[in-house]
Amino acid sequence: MRFPLSLFNMAHKKSQLCALSVALIVLLVSSCKKRPDDVVTTPNQSANITLSYVTTVGNEKVEFGKMKYTNSFGNKYNITLMKYYISYFTFIKQDNTEVNLYNHKLINVADSSTCYFTASNIPNGTYKAVRFYLGVDSAHNNSGTQEGELDPSYGMIWSWRTGYIFYKHEGNYLNDTGAELPLSYHYGTSTALAMVELPLSSFTIEGKSKTIEIKLDLNQLYNQNTPINFKTNGVRHSTDFDDQPWLLDMNNNFKRAFSINSIY
């Protein structure tokens, strides 16, 4: 490192290394431009893949406010707010090699502009699966001042502890006598991180942009596998003594609640 640094110092001291400085600046500009895509490939050897998340109840996109959904215990419910974190999106090739994004994305279901992100320059090839996490990995979930998608201002952190709410569903449900009660599921903590792996049937990238639409179906989350009973406790913030079984059930359900909706 001594040689290049001394070169820099000389240039910095405005010595006679004019040509060198010009070369340096040219290189610097060109090298910086190349930085964002660490996978350095020419455009037709890779493609930008958009990952789009659609949140549904069955086959219908979530509609906010309306008391129109029914869980498997026969209780109607609605949704007034729904947000969740997707992180560490990974493409898995046929030969098991991986392309990892190490990203975090907050999906605010009410705002379609937040429901997708683009993975740049994913190399051409045949991919057999994608993998991502519902939630925030423990390193990021346990550190303080974070920016971007993990900025604390998005209403997805706990007030009494460091860390993120992974999934937030706020609304109401009707109990067995038809009374409206609050439904407030704030799902998080390290137990809650759910790995989701979705197989792709012969998905190939051939230099052209594509979109993979991934569906989160609330029927799958609440009604299948281990059905979630709002009546047990409609207001859960993940850290009470009796929240553990709920966390585990939700965690298992999350792993099966996502599916590939379409690819185009």
Binding site: M1, P4, L7, A23, L24, I25, L27, L28, S31, C32
Partner: peptide, 12 residues
């Protein structure tokens, strides 16, 4: 190569 390294240290 050395210039490249130097420039990336300085700028990038």
């Amino acid at each position: 190569f050395l210039i490249y390294i130097a420039s990336s240290i300085v700028a990038c």
